[in-house]
Design a binder for these strands. Sequence first.
DNA 1: TGGGATTTCCAAAGCGCTTTAGTTGCCAAT
DNA 2: ATTGGCAACTAAAGCGCTTTGGAAATCCCA
Lengths: 342, 342
Amino acid sequence: MNLKELSERLGLSQTTVSRALNGFPEVSEATRTKVQAAARRYNYRPNMRARGLATGRAMAIGHVIPVSSKHEIVNPVFADFIAGAGETYSGADYDMVLTVVSDADEADAYRKLRAKGTVDGIIVHGPKVDDSRIALLHEIGLPFVVHGRSSEAALSYSWLDVNNRRAFERATSFLLDLGHRRIALVNGLETMDFAFRRRRGYEAALAARGLAPDPALILSDEMTEANGYRATHRLLELAAPPTALLTSSYISAIGARRAVEERGLKLGRDISIVTHDDELSYFRNGEDVPIFTATRSSVREAGRQAAAMLLDLIADPDQTPQTRLLEAALIVGASTGPAPRP
Amino acid sequence: MNLKELSERLGLSQTTVSRALNGFPEVSEATRTKVQAAARRYNYRPNMRARGLATGRAMAIGHVIPVSSKHEIVNPVFADFIAGAGETYSGADYDMVLTVVSDADEADAYRKLRAKGTVDGIIVHGPKVDDSRIALLHEIGLPFVVHGRSSEAALSYSWLDVNNRRAFERATSFLLDLGHRRIALVNGLETMDFAFRRRRGYEAALAARGLAPDPALILSDEMTEANGYRATHRLLELAAPPTALLTSSYISAIGARRAVEERGLKLGRDISIVTHDDELSYFRNGEDVPIFTATRSSVREAGRQAAAMLLDLIADPDQTPQTRLLEAALIVGASTGPAPRP
DNA sequence: TGGGATTTCCAAAGCGCTTTAGTTGCCAAT
DNA sequence: ATTGGCAACTAAAGCGCTTTGGAAATCCCA
């Protein structure tokens, strides 16, 4: 069923039918209800390609998810972010277009998306400290919102981020308050902006107590379970092992726990762990009492909000870049305790 | 840059330019190369909406991911499947359109996708034992491939699945061979087809040794870490606890391990665990020696292949439904050992 | 009762592409 | 010199919608 057929069946012009359905005022209420009823009866939905062609809008948002070409790792946080964004889109009748690319092809993917006209805007995932995509998207003139930030980006842009620096500063202070002095950081790749900021928060907290960071206690790698395990394993073998550690993701925390338990140590007594918790739906951090003490911020909610920001930006493209900084809650669980007496 | 501009700049008709770029034979090689060069220079890419309108093809595949309305859980396996499918699509110049819906709205989502004409085909995720979507998609006439199967579906359809029954039958036999007799099954929700099949494999293996399944040892729920923990915790508190258990996902296995270790038991000695391993990129099952004994099958590869099957089906819609059954490997890791002497 | 204002509807252009149905020019064959 | 055939190109219709620029019908008030 298309507009032409529907309008013929109603004995009205395509114009009137179109206007009736799209809520224009120059159509009487009587015919509007008649049209709406007919549309429902015949399950008529405007063809999006035709509408897009006529309006110049695609009614779709692009998400480009980078897959690091070396490791081929898909960000586990991604699924929940998408779910959140998806909620916002379906409420606004937008589609979500996903493109999976290795970082080598990423620039081309954006240009393509632009030239093909498949999307009205883009969510940028996983920004690096110095991320070329921001300049690129400015250049090609496609509205975008970054999930995270890019510390060294020259141009201004819209973003939504967790206050990673503050979160890790607080987490570190918390451990210091418990008497820990050798605190390790099992970070994500520090080319990633979030990891860079977390490191700075960690260092700031140490500095505030007059402590210098020990390079041997700072590790950084992709946030997989295996890497969390390996990093922790290595840390525990040091001559002067840490009494506490911060991990950058719940997934690496799981790996860290494995290493801790394998060694016969007890979490929260022999060694403390604070992790960042994105509130992944399949990986809840405990039910009543959190398993891990954590800096918590829902990535799903971030998805919802980032999507809403982008839709806003598309509706009014001339607005100045919007930014939103979410604070992470520091929740106390069973994985931390006072530093063991030496 | 659009076709009209490009053709004017070249002093050719739109027809010729279009044909040159789309590889039609009725254009001389000389002009073809000229046209291609110009297209590259001006970064011309056909507008997909216009092309779609003209050809009737969207050059996009829809993925509808159900979010169970009660628990709002996003399938953790999903990200890797998408990554695999994405590889196939980008090679074939297809886009991927994601729709996140709660199961209540799912039927409507498919109809909408069809009527709006945004996609040429659909991948069905997470089929239930008796899944209404198969009849629905037949009815609305949109090509589709199911990732998994629906045991009670009346109509035939294309699918790609892991041999879940065989995998769990083998896994159970493996444990039986090790002397285990009380073997628990920590399954996914048994409304899901894969979980249903795994249960049958488990039961078949027991039956083959003349053992009757003990209902107290069979649990089924959403495959989260928390549920894996809870189920295992409960099992270990039984008067006659199992000496081995099968878990339906790597995520629940992590929870199971937590329960085991919390109790001070040693995995592979005091209790054995076999899990299904989807080879999630962020959750590798060990590096050289697998952590868990597992039935392994790459969900990413499944994504690649399912997508390829769908593209095939779209290219030739009249073909009979294609099916592909992937066998899972049974890999032996550190989580299993002989049944402890009572 | 007439004429402007208002309401309600419509014909047709246009979005950027593909594709059908030619047209043109050229050469070989008659 | 004509014809037929082929290679190389083009004009224009059409995909299904929105939207511009009217036109017709109705209404209101002098």
